[in-house]
Design a protein around this nucleic acid. Structure first.
Lengths: 343, 343
DNA sequence: CTGAAAGCGCTTACAG
DNA sequence: CTGAAAGCGCTTACAG
């Protein structure tokens, strides 16, 4: 049996000998529909391979049953690279959306784009998930606009007091402290930091602060002279490590604010004939797949990206249906590999 | 000025003192609208932050302005892993969709799911992009159903004669030949192959066949006894390499059907105290980011995933608007790294 | 338990 | 160049 064109609820109504609204009710499992009638209708629907037209349904219900995932890219990164850190999160987000009966739109945005306009206002999506690193100062204004417009959203990133909207992120300071404690316990004393530890990159800043507090507890300082700005990209890490070496100050360990930075830095150190971990210990943050491939394998901080993805969706759905929701910081843990070792 | 609730074209019509259809025309740049009127309307629309309601528009036009990207996962892979090979493709697909004014839905599917039903029939998407590796025999039936249902789709994968629908893939045989020629030219004679080289995995089969033909040209055989099945996953590569060693047959080089397989195999070889490339040369396929991180860095075949993503979208759009489109094989090239060297 | 009616916000012939 | 009318395929009060 071949059906030309899509069938509608009216087609089914005719075949079942009922009215079209009854078909609609039966299909959505409305309890008022007679059991026998319902079965007949469902049978016909299955036979015709009928699916409710989403556009009509959404228009009528004034919703979209869709969430949008906006990945914004660092302007610095070349156009092909998403931070691999986000990949498992993408997987768990799509699965969580499916579980909630939501479709997921995905889009890459520049920090400069006009997000809300494109999604909220046009009824394309009921809520937004924001992923990606970028200058937080530029970002914050956008978030404020979203809040003002009443757009529902959650973002992955640093959880800061008084920030607009809801954020879910990892305990960056806690992760930084784990690294600091680990390095000091191994006997390292002069720890360099590669990453932009300013309020423009609050996640990096928290990692720095966490590390600093761990050192402080142990009677050691984090020296600003050993900190070099870097964004989360390999090239940026390579440049930062090169700059660090150029400064000529002594250091015995490096805490890279992300694995991508660490990988670039390792390449720079290797180019300068430095052995790791013998000459320099190095640790990263994120535990991207490449972290276990490097030589030596990279000690790093793990975030539970799978749970994070679910949490992002669950939280957004609460907002969408009007329930209260809260920002949240997730615990981190340290994976010790070969790039750090006792002095 | 705060507007409660979204504004509609009727609101604009009232404010502009014209009819609602005129607003609709002006907004879409219909040439019949008076210039001055158009400007007035556009100004008001901007002020109200008006966006056309996608559900209403799509319902009326009987389209969706949306493509769906279905990533299906190997049942073997753990739930968090997308082949990193697809990541840059994902990026270029989203960008190409934006260029075509299409939204992109993304979903992870099991090979067992009922794709077409969920997307085509419910008007969620005008066309489907299928990504992912899996048993082609199971897959083929699905493709046939899609064709029968009149669903528009393109898939990334082996381009085979007489296959249902349109496929875009790389020249797997050509890539295999590059590897075969390279290994033989380096002086290798007994080349093992890790990967399921059967019609269930036509891409792997083509890579095998290409390698075989390159060897044949040089008067050498590919030995089936040196072939071990593997799916594109690290664990599978590790198991296959272990099995290969267990067989105890001599071999001096390995062609892994994908980088993930190669990476798993390298770990197995290292565990057995084999040095690469001194004891065994190894080459992969895909050039995932991790390929340059391994020790030794992996020689592999590069596919132009960025162009591939664009091509997938461009081709699908042709199908959606009813233009003719064709399957296509893209060229490959070899990146020689340290994992292969002269004997 | 079921039907007739209205309406979600657009687009598109059809008149003028 | 512009408006009045119809209709896309649903869902949801409102009657009965």
């Amino acid at each position: 049996m071949t059906i030309k064109g899509k069938s509608t609820s009216l087609d089914i109504a005719h075949l079942a000998g009922v009215s079209q609204p009854t078909v609609s009710r039966a299909l959505r499992g409305h309890p008022s529909v007679n059991c026998e009638t319902r079965e007949r209708i469902l049978g016909i629907a299955r036979e015709l391979n009928y699916k409710v037209d989403k556009n009509a349904s959404n228009l009528r219900r004034q919703q979209s049953a869709t969430l949008a995932l906006l990945l914004f890219e660092d302007p610095t990164s070349d156009q092909s690279h998403i931070n691999p850190f986000f990949l498992p999160m993408l997987g768990s987000i799509t699965r969580a959306c499916a579980r909630h009966g939501q479709d997921l739109l995905i889009s890459f945005q520049q920090l400069s784009d006009d997000w809300h306009a494109d999604y909220g206002d046009s009824h394309k999506a009921d809520g937004l998930i924001l992923l990606g690193y970028g200058d937080y100062l530029a970002y914050q204004g956008k978030l404020r606009t979203l809040v003002e417009q009443g757009t529902q959203f959650v973002r992955w990133g640093a959880v800061l007091p008084g920030q607009p909207g809801i954020s879910i992120g990892c305990d960056n300071a806690g992760g930084g402290a784990l690294v600091g404690a680990h390095l000091v316990d191994l006997g390292h004393r002069r720890i360099a930091f590669l990453g932009d530890a300013s309020s423009r990159y609050p996640e990096f800043l928290d990692r720095w602060l966490g590390c600093e507090s761990a050192l402080h507890t142990r009677g050691l300082p984090m020296e600003r002279a050993l900190q070099v700005d870097a964004e989360s990209a390999e090239e940026s890490g390579h440049a930062a490590a090169t700059e660090l070496l150029r400064r000529g100050l002594p250091f015995d360990a490096v805490f890279a604010a992300s694995d991508l930075i660490a990988i670039g830095a390792m390449r720079a150190f290797a180019e300068h004939g430095l052995r790791m971990p013998d000459d320099i210990a190095i640790a990263g943050f994120d535990d991207i797949p490449a972290a276990r491939m490097t030589t030596p394998a990279l000690t790093t901080v793990v975030q539970d990206t799978l749970t994070a993805g679910e949490l992002l969706v669950d939280t957004l759905m609460k907002l969408v249906i009007g329930e209260p929701a809260e920002s949240l910081r997730m615990p981190t843990s340290l994976v010790v590999r070969e790039s750090t070792a006792r002095r």
